[in-house]
Design a protein around this nucleic acid. Structure first.
Length: 336
DNA sequence: GTCCGGATGATATCTAATGC
DNA sequence: GCATTAGATATCATCCGGAC
């Protein structure tokens, strides 16, 4: 390969995408790649490349700063292929909210390149039609996403990434005045449309959960996060954190009627689930499984209305029965 | 072999930042 | 405010490869 051509390609690669680099810095980078050029030659190369590829030069101050424009599609050699373009598209569509702002900024040229690739007219690429064939549907009633301030999301994700404490202004639904807390962010969890943050408040040991959209302002502090000894986000969730934390394991026994429990034969409640058809009715099923005693479990059971009867434990049976009676009582009142 | 055009390096000069 | 320094730019000579 022509050495000059090789040098020009390496010069393009040496220009950063997300910050400015001086001529001497680019020259050092080229030296590391085996190209010894004089400053003058590099200046000429950069001028030529800027005209051809739109590389930006900040000549407002010296040394001049060279960088790729923010919105220019990234040039990949070899060109980004279809599976990679599709993966970047899906990553942006479904996981962008879980990534720190700095990572998203870094990935922006890849996203642009992927979108440009997918926009191009190649009707015979079956993989391109994949986008019309896959969707992620919410399991329950679709709800609108609560608004999380962009500045809050960026600060929180950056603090999680760099493991630094945060000072936040937090407004609970019943509060008239916002709370001011210093928190140790430990993990970010998306459940449905809502983002939850696992945190230690001030210097308390207990890990609590706060809701991102109730954070009105977040400031990153210099102090490092101090996680509780041996904290694991996975274990914390397994212990029932997102089920709003009542916690302990129990043996649930319930009868599902009118086919309501049929899906449990394919998606069991637990590995030790037992399901037996009832003699009285072919559409009814008695299910027994070890589950966590959480508010989430109660919501799920109540969602079946009268199609489920909790047999045990007795305390859960009483609780569900009481809630259903209260609901029925409301319905029995005549509305004007 | 000669000519031509493009690339390169050396050098001078200009400009802006910095230190005293 | 002046001297110094670093970096950008202009100019010119040289080199090299391709065309004839």
């Amino acid at each position: 390969m022509d050495l000059n051509f090789r040098r020009l390609v390496d010069t393009l690669a040496a220009i950063p995408a997300n910050r400015k680099a001086s001529t001497s810095e680019i020259r050092e980078r080229l030296k590391a790649r085996g190209h010894e050029v004089t400053p003058r030659t590099l200046q000429r190369d950069l001028d030529a490349l800027a005209k051809e590829f739109g590389v930006e030069c900040d000549d407002g101050a010296k040394p001049y700063g060279w960088k790729w424009p923010k919105d220019i599609p990234r040039i990949s050699l070899p060109e980004m292929d279809w599976p990679v373009a599709l993966s970047f598209h899906l990553l942006r569509q479904y996981l962008a909210d879980l990534l720190p702002a700095s990572v998203l900024e870094h990935l922006a040229p890849h996203f642009s390149e992927a979108e440009a690739k997918l926009r191009r007219q190649f009707p015979d690429i079956p993989l391109k039609r994949w986008l019309q064939k896959v969707r992620v549907a919410p399991p329950g009633q679709p709800l609108c996403s609560p608004r999380v301030l962009r500045s809050v999301r960026d600060t929180v994700t950056e603090a999680l990434l760099s493991e630094r404490q945060l000072e936040i202004r937090y407004r609970r639904p019943r509060d008239t005045e916002p709370q001011h807390w210093r928190i140790h962010p430990l993990g970010l969890v998306q459940r449905g449309r809502v983002f939850y943050l696992a945190v230690r408040m001030f210097d308390y040991e207990e890990v609590r959960m706060i809701v991102m959209h109730r954070v009105e302002r977040a400031t990153m502090l210099a102090d490092p996060v101090q996680a509780p000894e041996g904290f694991s986000l996975d274990r914390w969730l397994e212990e029932g954190a997102l089920g709003f934390g009542r916690g302990g394991a129990m043996r649930l026994t319930a009868e599902f009627h009118e086919g309501a429990g049929r899906h449990l034969l394919e998606s069991p409640l637990s590995a030790d689930q037992e399901a037996t058809p009832l003699d009285t009715d072919a559409e009814s099923l008695r299910v027994s499984a070890t589950v966590r005693d959480t508010e989430q479990l109660r919501w799920w059971l109540l969602g079946f209305g009268g199609k489920v009867e909790v047999i045990g434990p007795a305390v859960l049976r009483r609780d569900i029965a009481s809630r259903l009676r209260a609901g029925a009582k409301r319905y029995s009142k005549r509305r004007r």
